[in-house]
Amino acid sequence: MAYVGTAHNTAGEHMNPILEATETAPTTVEETVRDYDELHDRAQAALPDAVAGDGVAIPEEVADDLADGEVVRFTGYYRLDIAQ
């Protein structure tokens, strides 16, 4: 699992929320979708790793920029899962 955080984060890695991104079919999406360019810089930094791997530990403020269950368009369409 990758870690996308600041060097000064003192919380134990296991305490951070885990972001997972699962590719989804856009044609079936009904709710509002956000594009990568609408995300905060911090969330933009985390998303590519989440897309590439199983899940990334993210700082709380990144979790606050994203919504559990939302769909984001990057190189595909990804449904986000944020486990606290």
Binding site: P26, T27, E30, T32, V33, D35, R73
Partner: peptide, 21 residues
């Protein structure tokens, strides 16, 4: 609406609803 995503609608990928803000 989400001007960034209208290209995705035009590609035929996204329906209209997710583009509304």
């Amino acid at each position: 609406y989400n001007r960034i995503l209208i290209k995705e609608f035009a590609k035929g990928k996204l329906p209209e609803a997710p583009i509304s803000i």
